[in-house]
């Protein structure tokens, strides 16, 4: 991070490689389709490196990325809504924001149902669970640190999201 601020191209490339999944999953967790999420991820990184001098605390990087991605996702969605008001009927005709499994036969039934149920969760839950999963990986200690700041609210909320997911899964699959 210090090296990235000093302008080392390799340091910047490494940061991008390490933390793009984080930015990606925040964008996707905020309701963007994959195409729009890809634009937002690029915009966020370009914005980071053009403002990196004002980012004083390296530890703040993960939370900066999360906050900026949320804001950018919101901005994009407001714009889309203004451009073309969505009616329920149109919304139904939109392609799902979830990628379709390319070959469902290769997936287990359980995976497909779980992923579908996940897509029905409120966005806040989708984002929180994506972040929780990433934060549990060793390479995302930064994310865990960023989330630790508000651990008090995360435990119970995460539990409620997981409960909702279980309920959706039961409803969806008719049990089992």
């Amino acid at each position: 991070m210090h090296a990235a601020r000093a302008g080392s191209r390799i340091a910047r490339a490494t940061l991008v490689k390490d933390l793009t999944p984080l930015v990606w999953h925040v964008a996707r967790g905020n309701g963007l389709d994959r195409t729009t999420a890809e634009d937002v991820v690029q915009t966020v990184w370009l914005a980071l490196f053009s403002h990196i001098n004002s980012l004083a605390e390296p530890k703040a990087l993960a939370s900066w990325l999360i906050t900026t991605t949320r804001r950018e996702a919101h901005r994009v969605r407001v714009k889309v809504t203004n451009d073309l008001p969505l009616t329920d009927e149109m919304a139904e005709q939109l392609p799902s924001t979830q990628p379709q499994p390319e070959d469902e036969a290769l997936r287990t039934d359980r995976d497909t149902r779980l992923w579908r149920a996940f897509g029905e969760l409120p966005e806040k839950c989708q984002e929180l669970l994506r972040l929780t999963v990433l934060a549990g990986r060793s390479e995302y200690r930064l994310v865990a640190e960023a989330m630790q700041m508000k651990r008090g609210s995360i435990g119970p909320t995460r539990g409620r999201c997981l409960n909702t997911l279980r309920e959706l899964l039961d409803t969806e699959g008719g049990g089992g």
Binding site: R12, V16, E38, Q42, L114, T132, L162, L165
Partner: peptide, 27 residues
């Protein structure tokens, strides 16, 4: 359940192929 989700976000919703390289080029 979290362990299942951990596996599934990579399986069903990974960052697009080449995205990291495109960003690295852009910066």
């Amino acid at each position: 359940l979290l362990a299942e989700l951990d596996r599934m976000i990579d399986e069903f919703d990974p960052p697009p192929a080449g995205l990291v390289e495109r960003i690295q080029f852009a910066i």
